[in-house]
Amino acid sequence: MKDKIVKFLGSTPILFLCRFILGGLFIYASIDKIVHPAAFAKIIYNYRLFPDFSVYPLAVFLPWVEMFTGIFLVAGIFKKNAATMLSILLILFIGALSFNLIRGLDFNCGCFTTAATGKGDPLGLIFRDILLLIPGLVIIFFQKKKIHARQ
């Protein structure tokens, strides 16, 4: 039974699906932030977690990390590393959302859009990010490294 599950999760279609879902979502999420960096800077500031000097660099740099890592993952380049990076980002997002939920702060998630409509139920957002961790973990644990045959 255990072998069957391992074989299923390690199969090419499942791994491709995981890469496509996780990578595709991060590419999609990065576009609005790249287009509206000033609005994204305001959202980062409103999380009240980062020092003032880091807000602009994060607003300029973070969406591109999401974009490139997503592209690499979908394209199948640096698969394990890209999945690890996106999973770390998701864990950081879960941490930030949970911290502000506990503090009772009213803030815009800035997950997929920089518009004010990006506000959502923080618990729902945390749950969604936890769900998104699943494809990342599947890739990390079941994606086999290429074995180069020795001559």
Partner: peptide, 23 residues
Amino acid sequence: MSIIAGVAYNGFSESPLPIFKKY
């Protein structure tokens, strides 16, 4: 790659963010 793309995109945008200034 992200740093290079981010800085380049910001530099060429019509209203660039002041990266090295405090928010």
